[in-house]
Amino acid sequence: MSTAANSESHHTSCGWLLGLRSWWRMLIICLEERLAYRSDFALGTVMRFLPIVTQVFLWTAVFAASSRTDIAGYSRDNIVAYYLLTMVTRAFSSMPSLAGGISRSVRDGSVKKYLIQPIDYVGFLLASRIAHKLVYYIVAILPFAAVLFFCRGYFPPAPDGLTIAAYILSLLLSFLLGFFMEATLGMIAFWFLEVSSIIFAYMLFQYLLSGHMFPIDMLADIPTGITGVSLADVVRLLPFEYTAYFPAAVWLGKITGWELVRGLLIEIAWLVIMIGVCRFVWWRGTKRYSGFGG
């Protein structure tokens, strides 16, 4: 009895070890793949800072012409800091080519190799995305640090330790939420082979409703036709705000106390829902998938 239990325990630990080794191998493959075209990658990283320059000048011009010191609770410096912080959040939550890659693998049939190999496709994608992000952070940390240091004057004093911890947690959750949302989107290809238009439409909504384009608070005075319900209230019912607005608002002290705890719990709830939806869509999609030939 004891021997059988020991053997089972040994097998379980071996299984874990093998799983970890597979993940590590996948991570290394993806790191090598990402670093194969270094100049293209470095150029892409640096270029992401260009739109923020336009936003700084645009909002400076808006504040100068309006003679206001405050728009929707944001000073000019607050808005610049907000855009910089959303860039940091998007570095975690954006998943370039993930949905497109999945739909392409369904369309061209390359997904079938994951169906016959003892590899969890979603797990593989997650490992490769972690690798993708790790390489990105290694390359991007210097330009990010330089820009944030250069623009430190726009930021309010740093928040307390607990808020910083909540901020980091919200960033990590935004990564996972972004991943599962886009992976689910890509799997729509099991039903509609050509999903590029759907992906583009999703990107549009994501850009607008996540607060990437402007702080969601700016919609607080826009009525919806329902008494006491503004457009901002409607937008906050969706998961998008956690992929840009929420972490930035946490750092800037716009969301504090119980509101912050409630926000984090809702973000976790959205993540659990999206993991479930992603797994369900994969299960249903692979049930109806047909692959022929070599």
Binding site: L58, A61, V62, A65, R68
Partner: peptide
């Protein structure tokens, strides 16, 4: 929020 983009 503003009547024009850039004062004057």
């Amino acid at each position: 929020f503003t009547p024009e983009i850039g004062r004057g």
